[in-house]
Structures are given as structure tokens and as C-alpha cells.
């Protein structure tokens, strides 16, 4: 895990823009709504590289991105996680 994102799910409005821009398909829309009634984005950090694409496009600035500078991500290791399978 070279990167990590933290989503403030209570503030997320579930627009889904981060889901589309994530190059590693790490983000999915949750099946459970938050207190405001939106279905927020949720993350499986397994393949996250900390590229911050999701944070750049997030209109509500609810994503924080962290990156481990010591780990170099292996190219092509975009194995699908359980959550992305669920979405498909």
C-alpha cells in the first residue's frame, strides 16, 4: 500500500466523480446512506497509490490523501477488490 485516502463519509454527497477518476478503481459508492441521506463514496485502500486524483475532483473537499514515500507501487497490480466486484 503506497498510498491511503480518508473520506469524510458524513460530508460526502455521493456524486461519484472520484469513482470515475480513480485509476486503480479503489473507490466505490456505499450501499449504506449517511446521516444526510446520501450514499457516500467508500474506499478500499489496497491498490491506492496516493495520486490524489479523487481529491482534486472532489467538489466537497472530503478526501484527504496520504502517500508513503518509501514504497514504489508495482505497475499493473490493479487486482479487483471485493467491493469493486460487488459494484460490477
Amino acid at each position: 500500500m503506497a498510498g491511503k485516502i480518508v473520506i469524510d463519509t458524513e460530508r460526502c454527497k455521493g456524486c461519484g466523480l472520484c469513482v470515475v477518476v480513480c485509476p486503480k478503481n479503489c473507490i466505490v459508492i456505499s450501499r449504506h446512506s449517511n446521516k444526510n441521506g446520501y450514499f457516500p463514496a467508500q474506499v478500499t485502500n489496497a491498490d491506492c497509490t496516493g495520486c490524489a486524483m479523487c481529491a482534486i475532483i472532489c467538489p466537497d473537499v472530503v478526501i484527504e490523501v496520504y502517500r508513503d514515500e518509501n514504497i514504489v507501487p508495482i505497475e499493473g497490480s490493479s487486482k479487483k477488490t471485493e467491493l469493486t466486484k460487488e459494484r460490477a
Binding site: K4, A52, D60, I63, V65, Y66, D68
Partner: peptide, 27 residues
């Protein structure tokens, strides 16, 4: 881990009234 992206201080730490997916938040 190094923080790559976080909320900038001039943007107040409060939710906006904009609709989901609105571009105003980005601007």
C-alpha cells in the same frame, strides 16, 4: 505517511450547500 492533499486553511471547514457534483465547490 506524508500528507499529499488536505483542506487548505482559507477554505472553511464546513459542508457546502451545493448539489452533489456541482463545480462551485472545486472553484
Amino acid at each position: 505517511m506524508k500528507t499529499v492533499f488536505t483542506r487548505t486553511p482559507t477554505l472553511k471547514d464546513c459542508p457546502t450547500h451545493y448539489c452533489p457534483g456541482c463545480g462551485h465547490g472545486i472553484a
